[in-house]
Amino acid sequence: MREIAWNTIRDTVASLAVRANTVLDAKVEEAIRQARKTEESPVGLSILDQLLENGRIARETATPICQDTGLAVVFVTIGQEVHVTGGSLEAAIHAGVAKGYTEGYLRKSVVRDPLDRVNTGDNTPAIIHYRIVPGEELTLTVAPKGIGSENMSRIFMLKPSQGLAGIRQAVLDTVEAAGSNACPPLVIGVGVGGNFEKCAELAKEALLRPIGQHAQDPSWAKIEEDLLKAVNDLGIGPQGFGGRTTALWLAIETYPTHIGGMPVAVNINCHVARHESATL
């Protein structure tokens, strides 16, 4: 049994939230530099340059990369030998989000009720996903997610007969419908399999995978590559102004599913693709 103090978890979540929102991921930056080499649209190129410059300003001035500092999505992987002292794990995470968003000058974008829409004032509650594993480590991943891209995400309950062509159609239809709304160039997370909620979670987890790292299964890695190319062939381009760079990356996570179904979720993210992790 290992003890981890409540306030250590709170402070870790707070600093991860601030870092995720103010430091553009180095792999995203590299992907934008790579995209510059193939982008044919002059306007598209100028947008990619603006995003690089924006990342530099954000990092140097600790200003958020984007004003939508998002809902705080937190992935928790907790060893079953860990005991949290001084309070509950869940309360520590919410307190960390409140602290990070308040002290880090991040935007508070959460309303307490979908209809009365009163702001909670500290960006809580977080959306938390737990996984319990063997061992005595606690890994926290904070993945703030803006709503502009979240609003353009979709779930499809496909039939098994639709196969790979169905998955491809689902992804392309979603990206095309997202158009300029989700601030392309995008990072796209796809979940295939499981059930209604599992495929959505898979799609979200796909967004956590480092850009440039394909699925381990070579056949899914090939599908990722082909789908990214198909997405970029749509011509939507940076900000929807036309061009070669509609998405920087596309990752697929899969899970076993039912004999009668093939759920597909497409979680659209903007270029910022924020996620920061720490292991305690």
Partner: peptide, 25 residues
């Protein structure tokens, strides 16, 4: 440009809240 919030903030010289302050952002 969506996603260029830090860059665009540098073009804003003055900001004054004139209504609905209770709405925060």
């Amino acid at each position: 440009t969506g996603g260029a919030g830090a860059l665009l903030s540098h073009c804003i010289l003055e900001s004054e809240t004139i209504a609905y302050e209770d709405l925060g952002t």
